[in-house]
């Protein structure tokens, strides 16, 4: 129960931050990516602002054995950079650039994003559903 409560609290704060920062507005995201147009640096402030408290949180996590609710903390980051990380990030970036939406804002804007936002969310979930099979194919090609 407490796990769900804190998860909802975290999700709610995430959503509030996305709304307040303007990152639910695709023109601000695409404005950041559009270095040859009316470049909008807001996203850098959002990223910088988000990384600061997380840096503190990781330092606190390093000094603890378990999380507050008793479960294990994440292991040290995996240092292996594989082909799926690169291929996946390029595909994700392409979609992000096209629509100006990434997974967080796509969910946060569900209540006011209209039909377009809903269609994006459904297509994104379809892509997520198809990804494991695609990953197997890519791995087979990579090891062939």
């Amino acid at each position: 129960m407490m796990r769900n409560l804190f998860a909802a609290l975290s999700g709610g704060l995430f959503g509030a931050g996305l709304l307040v920062s303007g990152m639910v507005d695709t023109t601000k995201v695409q404005g950041w990516l559009d270095i040859f147009g009316a470049w909008d640096p807001t996203l850098a402030f959002v990223m910088g602002g988000a990384i600061l408290p997380m840096m503190v949180a990781w330092q606190v996590a390093r000094r603890r054995k378990v999380a507050l609710l008793g479960s294990a903390l994440p292991e040290a980051p995996d240092p292996r950079v594989g082909h799926n990380l690169v291929i996946g990030s390029v595909l994700f970036g392409a979609g992000w650039g096209l629509a100006g939406l990434c997974p967080g804002p796509a969910m946060a804007s569900l209540s006011f994003g209209g039909i377009g936002g809903l269609v994006f969310l459904v297509a994104m979930m379809a892509g997520m559903w198809a990804a494991p099979a695609l990953r197997q194919r890519i791995d087979r090609l990579a090891t062939a």
Binding site: S10, L13, F14, G22, T42, V46, G49, A57, V60, L73
Partner: peptide, 24 residues
Amino acid sequence: DWLWGLIGGLMIGGAGAVFLLANG
């Protein structure tokens, strides 16, 4: 816009901190 971006960013980082430190 930048100021709201920074405030919103801090909230997003705070959300990540809660999820990490409470739920692991």
